[in-house]
Design a protein around this nucleic acid. Structure first.
Lengths: 143, 143
DNA sequence: GATAATCCTATAAAATCAGTAGACTAATCC
DNA sequence: GGATTAGTCTACTGATTTTATAGGATTATC
């Protein structure tokens, strides 16, 4: 399951994507509207900034805004940054690969193929879910 | 990522599936061959027994054995029992459903569809991965 | 009744998660 | 240039989960 941090991050990003191009949005506003504890959100947005998803501006009139257009930010990136590996086993992870201690015989591990297939399918779906697509869906649903 | 408990469970079950129909297998043997801490494995096998995947026999000549044929035991069941929900969000879980507190607007949550699709694809792959299929693959790889 | 095996309860160290506190830094406006 | 505003950074805390381990109780077999 995704951590709260990750869910908060996704909702905050969708909120920012809706306001893309309208200047910085303050942490407090996002926290209020998305019902996220402010201090926690502060740390999350900082991580997204260090992960090159967000930019920030300090001082009056400051806040956070997307570093790239909503089309260019998808959920794989967000999840990896705030939740860790997408794969269910370390030995089938692209970005967090580690050999499986549990596999007695690594090279032909019985279950590897199954979880490789799951990873591929999951990545495909997540990479299609970019922020622009999510915002578009939200607007449609509101009608 | 899957917990160690879950990975241990899967490997133990594949080991038992290979020996299906040959009588009970002792915890100690499984622990040795699959490099699983014996006491931890003890607890895991007990859980699989309570989950109606394994049967056990006490006393001399006792041990654990599959309660059903390997074809009838698939990874969805094992993962749910030893690792929890397969879905990435509680609001798209079949067996562990809970409403998402984080969703400000539950009914048309922006991200729900994406994770519903992922759950469906994952379930499809996992349900095809029954113990018989995994054993068959293992034998092929060993050649 | 000795032995061999699982069953059960309790405990504990380590890691992760979720959140908070408070001081620091930088930008803006007057 | 000083007050104000808003993000930055470090550290800490409490709760929960994970990964075990210990030790005795129970049951089946010979």
């Amino acid at each position: 399951m995704l951590s709260k941090k990750c869910k908060y991050a996704i909702h905050a990003l969708v909120y920012l994507a809706e306001r893309h191009g309208q200047g910085p949005v303050q942490i407090g506003e996002i926290a209020d509207r998305q019902k996220i504890p402010k201090k926690f959100l502060e740390a999350i947005l900082l991580e997204l900034r260090n992960g090159r998803i967000l930019n920030s501006k300090k001082g009056k009139g400051g806040g956070y805004y997307l570093q790239r257009s909503p089309e260019e930010i998808n959920l794989t990136e967000v999840i990896r940054l705030t939740n860790g590996p997408i794969a269910l086993l370390p030995c089938v992870s692209l970005n967090f690969y580690e050999s499986c201690e549990e596999c007695v015989n690594e090279k032909n591990c019985t279950i590897r193929t199954t979880f490789l297939t799951i990873r591929d399918e999951t990545l495909k779906i997540l990479s299609e879910s970019n922020l622009a697509a999510l915002v578009k869906k939200q607007k449609k649903d509101r009608k």
